[in-house]
Design a binder for these strands. Structure first.
Lengths: 275, 275
DNA sequence: CTCGATATACTCACTTGGAGTATAATAGGA
DNA sequence: TCCTATTATACTCCAAGTGAGTATATCGAG
């Protein structure tokens, strides 16, 4: 959920009137986007000089949060609007196989690695590991590592305006914050039932799977996904079915609001499929 | 590593002269404890009104970090000294079985749960889950949850001065920050090779195991621990042995500074032993 | 030389997780 | 009416991972 036509994330100053950081944040997001925020989790606090204004008189400290809401129309004040995050990170979407843009990125990164003789080997291995090249597996959690590496190599507009850049840029370091959020969320869905913060009241198993796939940027193995889900006993049938999905009607499920949200998805990983 | 005779964590204000949050922190810790800090990781940013000064004129924002160093004598300015963290959290050390103090804590928590009729069931389940009662397994990562629950129930001196309290208290909310750090570290050792930040140049496998056990507050299964370690290929033999351990001399190992620190301990959990 | 203590190596059974296949129920078109 | 495409649901298989136990090796002390 963005403001300024997709150029920035909702944000605002922390003021004395705010009861807490979270409370202040909720107010700002509500004002700017018209959305009440449900799930909220602190991400990271930035205060690097080079990432903010160059003034020597004051210093911005940015405290970033990850929030989850259900999609809905949003008549807020700041020109809010929904944007899929792969618009900003097209190389992160592997649901339809390896995206083509990755080849170009890999080429440019490898040229960048070759460019400095002294750190060549280190850079090359870092590129290969981070982007899953040369037989290394693609690790969907390294979103921030990949962005930072591309920033270093001057492949994103925030670092090198004008140069042929990958993905849509954002205001200031908002894209970096977004990368942090995606990375955190991709890691978290593996051991905490946060997906349900994004789901409507009732849903089919495939809808749930498609949501997880959208987050992870990967396709999952259907039978194993189902096995995993009902092992956890986190959802229950509503008793109703829907035929809106085409084909055989699907059972509808709802989230069993677990007594303890802290309850972990005991050591479960995602059931990936390599195909 | 504490200052003020074990009553506080090293801390200091962030100033305009500091290049970054991390750089400022390093300076402060070095000054107060005489220690250079190696590994550093941001923990959490607090700005709750009730946890800081009650003034309406200004507001403290505390940005906490987790740092790891190797033990050594420390002639710093702030009366620095080493303290085992189980001095502050005696209920967290399960290396010699369930600590006795847990029975008392459990009793008092259960009385607290019973005290409020409307939320009784919820509180009881929360206590059982968080402290591993009534057949629920002990989850060593819930350090912060346990501390917060005890805070709520008035079992720690920070919340209720004078009342029979468990563990040694600290200045302001420093014990809460420490709990956050322990929780983070206990979670992290399972998928990142951070233990080696605490180890000397060369060490035996049992020394490594004892270190992990001290962090996790649990005993590990020796053969499985060794199997896990050499699967990861993170360490290599130095070629030397030591007989300082008593019994058969043990081989010495060193950490193979992996080309990429980001390299995960691919999905490894700790080899726990239930005995 | 025996015993206690520590170090190291191997085996076994059970669970988990990736992958594939089979069957059921609907809509739409030949 | 029947066939087919499409989606939903259920079951099996196998290899790798993991908890647990046992056996052997090498030192010091008495």
């Amino acid at each position: 959920m963005t403001v300024r036509r997709g150029e920035a994330l909702p944000s605002g100053p922390f003021e004395l009137g705010h009861r807490s950081l979270q409370a202040g944040l909720r107010e700002w997001v509500q004002d700017q986007t018209g959305h009440p925020v449900g799930y909220l989790e602190q991400l990271y606090t930035f205060a690097d000089r080079d990432r903010t204004h160059e003034s020597a008189r004051w210093r911005a400290i940015s405290i970033s949060y990850l929030g989850l809401v259900r999609e809905q129309a949003a008549p807020g004040a700041g020109n809010p609007g929904w944007h899929g995050w792969y618009e900003y990170f097209p190389w992160e979407d592997h649901r339809k196989g390896r995206p083509e843009i990755l080849s170009e990125i890999a080429d440019r990164l490898q040229r960048w690695a070759e460019a400095e003789p002294s750190r060549r080997e280190y850079r090359k291995r870092r590129v290969e590991f981070t982007f899953g090249l040369e037989g290394a597996p693609w690790n969907e959690e390294l979103v921030l590592h990949r962005y930072e590496l591309m920033y270093e190599a001057g492949l994103v507009a925030e670092a090198a305006p004008g140069s042929g850049s990958a993905g849509r840029a954002m205001f200031a370091d908002h894209r970096r914050i977004l990368a942090t959020g995606i990375a955190r969320l991709r890691a978290k869905i593996k051991y905490r039932p946060v997906v349900f913060e994004l789901m409507p009241e009732s849903f089919t198993l495939l809808q749930l799977q498609r949501t997880v796939e959208a987050l992870a940027g990967l396709t999952l193995h259907k039978p194993n996904f189902r096995r995993l889900i009902d092992q956890q006993e986190l959802i229950e049938e509503t008793g109703e079915v829907t035929s809106e999905t085409g084909g055989r009607p699907a059972k509808l499920f709802r989230y069993r609001h677990a007594v303890l949200e802290e309850r972990a998805l005991s050591g479960s990983k995602l059931p990936l499929s390599r195909s």
